[in-house]
Design a protein around this nucleic acid. Structure first.
Length: 463
DNA sequence: GCATGATCATGC
DNA sequence: GCATGATCATGC
């Protein structure tokens, strides 16, 4: 057995060498005879206490005060296509809004506690018990210059809301890599904030799961991937926000017909031509969505085509949902709530004119938390209940299934509609459909009403 | 083979 | 004319 010295005074080398002894072992194996310990607290607490001999603390200094290192144990998962993803965001320290209001970036609780992180990644598997999860990788994380410049900007965005008494309006999609996620005993955990009497949800600093996924894929695992970065100039990012830099790169081409851009850049015609155009204007050879910044910040590019009269032809689709998964979920931590809370959209707007489309504008947008937790929640709950009760099909007419899902005309925000390759491109149903007896149904997804998208674009233009 | 972005086709 | 069900096209 290791001698029980106070873990807080371990050096960086000692921390890492202890960490390495845990790799390729399960928590059960690490715990040896003390397996039951695992069930008394979180895995992270277990590792801190039993392996590194640290007592739990909520101080603003890092776990290892001598080395200036904070320890985090975090899960990742293996996807269908064999790639790895972070299972969740990396939650850091809880924010004391009143205290944090007084700080600058380098004196903030985020920086003083988390400027250097020692990460232990374990493989989360749905069919296994906690004690059988393997610790697979370790990584000593210090932020690169490119990441740090964006993280500083993120911190200032969060800080600005705190000092202006708007802590209750913070959203994860406000920021790129560093976010302020809700954290509490329950969703009702509220606390005092600076400069306002409104109680705000308790939040903690966190690194987005999209950021953690990219970290894992490009720096942590043995098969390190190469990813293209759009903005390589750190100085440029210090002066302007990421969104401003992107906007300024596209802006010179506003008003230009796509045919002209295609010619000018020698782009080949294709159905996703608008997507390709945006990529070329940003100097990206592949997909914009696959660049470092977009992946890490979870920004999804969407091209929008306006008709000559300024109306949008089509509603906007999102990833399909699984019927059997959505019925199992609680709204509060549902896949879709998380998706809209953490995803920012880059809307690239083209307008039809003279048998061509003109690049008109570019906007960054995320669904406001109040809309997510009211209008969207309503649509989501309705959808879940219809599936749960086997009441998808309302009527079969001329061989076509008419459904009870929310229609575009039912709500101003969203509707639910098929999104598949063919009608028989289906997902299994948790209960048989009452009307038809079907055990699987055409893949569906939530669609953002085109009228609502119009409203977004027009509102943003006005402001 | 399938997810995803984008668009079509029919009937009210 | 548009809502709604359905499908196309591309790329990984």
């Amino acid at each position: 057995m290791r001698e029980k010295i106070d873990g807080r005074y371990l050096t960086e080398t000692e921390i890492v060498s202890i960490g390495k002894t845990l790799l390729h072992k399960t928590f059960g194996q690490i715990a040896e005879t003390n397996e039951t310990l695992l069930y008394k607290g979180s895995i992270g607490n277990f590792v801190e206490k039993e392996i590194f001999n640290l007592s739990p603390n909520s101080r603003s200094e890092p776990d290892f005060i001598e080395a200036g290192v904070e320890l985090k144990v975090t899960p990742f998962k293996l996807n269908q296509d064999k790639s790895y993803s972070a299972k969740e965001r990396l939650v850091l320290n809880i924010i004391n809004y009143v205290e944090e209001a007084k700080q600058s970036f380098y004196s903030s609780s985020f920086w003083t506690k988390n400027s250097k992180l020692y990460l232990l990644f374990y493989l989360w598997e749905s069919n296994k018990a906690q004690k059988d999860f393997f610790i697979m990788f370790d990584y000593l994380l210090t932020f690169s210059d490119e990441d740090l410049v964006i993280i500083k900007k993120d911190w200032h965005i969060i800080h600005e809301k705190i000092i202006s008494g708007k802590a209750h309006e913070i959203s994860e999609a406000d920021t790129m890599y560093l976010a302020a996620c809700t954290k509490g005993v329950n969703k009702e955990s509220l606390r005092k904030q600076h400069n306002s009497d409104i109680l705000a949800k308790q939040r903690a600093y966190s690194l987005k799961s999209s950021y953690m996924t990219q970290l894992l894929r490009t720096r942590v695992t043995d098969k390190k991937e190469e990813v293209v970065r759009i903005i390589s100039d750190v100085i440029e990012l210090e002066k302007k926000s990421f969104e401003e830099v992107i906007y300024e790169r596209i802006k010179p081409h506003f008003g230009t017909p796509t045919k002209q851009i295609i010619k000018q850049f020698g782009i080949e015609k294709s159905k996703n031509i608008n997507e390709v155009i945006v990529a070329r204007l940003l100097g990206v050879q592949g997909k914009v969505s696959q660049t470092e910044e977009f992946l890490k910040a979870n920004i999804v590019p969407k091209t929008i085509r306006l008709k000559g009269n300024g109306k949008i032809k089509e509603s906007m689709s999102f990833p399909t949902f699984r019927f059997d998964s959505i019925v199992e979920e609680d709204w509060e931590d549902s896949t879709y709530r998380d998706y809209f809370e953490s995803t920012k959209f880059m809307l690239v707007i083209f307008k039809e004119k003279n048998d061509d489309f003109i690049l008109q504008d570019i906007k960054f947008w995320n669904m406001p938390v109040s809309v997510i937790d009211n209008e969207f929640k309503d649509v989501w709950l309705h959808t879940q209940s219809i599936i749960k009760n086997g009441e998808i099909v309302k009527e079969v007419r001329n061989g076509i299934y008419l459904t009870n899902f929310i229609k575009k005309s039912d709500r101003s925000l969203m509707h639910v509609r098929p999104h598949a390759q063919k009608r028989d491109d289906t997902y299994p149903l948790p209960v048989a459909d009452k009307k038809t007896g079907l055990l699987s149904y055409t893949k569906h997804c939530f669609w953002l009403n085109n009228d609502y998208v119009s409203k977004i674009i027009n509102q943003m233009k006005a402001s």
